[in-house]
């Protein structure tokens, strides 16, 4: 019983505040940023290599379009590079970079609300979590399995696009990218309570949309 409570508190604390790994990561980033600010422009490539996959993943899950996500990710890195002299280290670099990317993405989505062309990326089934989920959903193999997975992806993308921009952002940052409530609140410039409320509401909508795939 006590062990369950401790485990629950651990999970709750992980969702509320940044983890020690994230804090260490922030310190490393700050060192690289100071090198860039001192004139070592090539050091910015380390930050690009470190965060390009995560930034692209967030932007892709918000836009559901690969080309748009690539452009917006590149623009986010360019803006960060141009503004890095003004970065004072008051927040972690990845929070600052996420904020730039998400603001650019939200601005883009507000300007292009009618866009409905989605692209699908291949699911990497070498990851144990995704493999377990797919095996739990279907026992098909081969081409039928691939068709089933693509259909599931399309339905999931449609359900995500039915969410509002803010709800989609919260779900993406928390469930897909694994950020804490506090980090999301910093990135979206809102309170932690707002983040929780949006997350709860967004999950309810997604569950209603994906009810056929849940058990």
């Amino acid at each position: 019983m006590v062990g369950c409570v401790l485990e629950a508190m651990k999970v709750l604390g992980k969702t509320l505040v940044a983890t020690p790994e994230r804090l260490r990561e922030a310190d490393d980033d700050w060192n690289v940023v100071r090198r860039v600010q001192a004139g070592e422009v090539a050091a910015f490539d380390q930050l690009i290599l470190k965060y390009r996959t995560r930034i692209f993943g967030v932007v892709y899950n918000l836009t559901s379009n690969r080309e748009d996500a690539a452009d917006l990710t590149q623009d986010a890195f360019i803006k960060a590079f141009q503004s890095i002299q003004r970065f004072q280290g008051q927040s972690s670099f990845f929070t600052w970079l996420y904020r730039i990317a998400i603001n650019a993405t939200l601005s883009y989505l507000r300007k292009n609300r009618t866009r409905s062309f989605f692209s699908l990326e291949r699911i990497d089934e070498s990851e144990p979590v995704s493999k377990e989920v797919i095996e739990a959903l279907t026992d098909k193999t081969g081409v039928e399995r691939d068709a089933y997975v693509r259909e599931l992806q399309e339905r999931l993308n449609e359900a995500m696009q039915k969410l509002s921009i803010n709800h989609r952002t919260v779900v993406t940052l928390f469930e897909i990218d694994g950020l804490s409530h506090q980090e999301i609140a910093e990135i979206m410039d809102c309170s932690v309570g707002t983040v929780r409320s949006r997350l709860h509401y967004a999950k309810q909508l997604l569950q209603a949309e994906m009810a056929a795939y849940l058990r």
Binding site: G57, Y60, N61, L120, E121, R122, I123, D124, E125, E127, V129, S130, V133, I134, L152, Q153, L156, V171, E175, I176, D177, L206, M210, Y213, L214
Partner: peptide, 9 residues
């Protein structure tokens, strides 16, 4: 289901 999206590459 959302973890599937995390595995998209």
């Amino acid at each position: 289901l959302l973890q599937l999206k995390r595995a998209e590459r």
